Simulated scan of single mutants.
Amino acid sequence: MAAPIVVGTDGSDPAGDAVDWAAGEAGLRHRPLHIVHAAEIWPYQVRRFTEGSGAVSRAGRAILAETEERVRKRHPEVRVTTSLVVNSTVTALRDESEKAFELVLGHRGHGGFAGLPLGSVCLRLAGRSAVPLVIVRGGDGVHGEVAVGHDLDAEPDGALHYAFDAAAVRGARLRVVYAWQISAALAQSGYSVDEERMNDEQRARVIETYAPLRERYPMVEVVDEVLRGHPVAALTRVSRTADLLVVGTHDRPRGMPRLGSVSHGAIHHAECPVAVVGPS
Rank of each mutant, 00 (worst) to 15 (best):
G144I: 09
V85K: 12
K73Y: 02
V176K: 09
A163L: 08
R31Y: 00
E40W: 06
R240D: 07
R240E: 13
E195S: 04
S97P: 06
R205P: 01
R94Y: 05
A59Q: 12
S88W: 11
G255P: 01
V136H: 03
V206F: 05
M219D: 12
V169K: 06
V71N: 03
L259N: 07
L152G: 04
E215L: 09
L245T: 10
R108E: 10
G16I: 05
V238K: 11
A163V: 11
H34D: 01
R254P: 00
E25T: 14
E102L: 15
L213P: 03
R254M: 09
E68F: 04
E195F: 02
V7A: 01
R70N: 09
K73E: 14
F101E: 15
A38Y: 06
A2F: 05
E225P: 00
L244E: 03
A92Y: 08
L123I: 12
H268W: 02
V71L: 09
P132Q: 13
G171C: 08
A147I: 05
R72V: 14
E51P: 02
V121L: 10
E40G: 14
V85P: 06
A23V: 07
E77S: 15
R240V: 10
A38L: 12
D200F: 02
F164K: 13
H230V: 08
L186S: 03
L186P: 01
R254I: 06
P253W: 03
E155N: 08
I5M: 01
V169T: 12
N199D: 13
V223K: 12
I63E: 00
L133T: 10
P32K: 14
D95W: 04
V56M: 00
A242Y: 05
T67E: 01
I135Y: 05
D251K: 13
G139Y: 03
R203Y: 03
A65V: 10
G119E: 14
T81E: 06
L105W: 06
R258W: 07
G24V: 14
H150L: 15
S192N: 07
V247L: 09
L245P: 04
L93I: 14
F101T: 13
H269G: 00
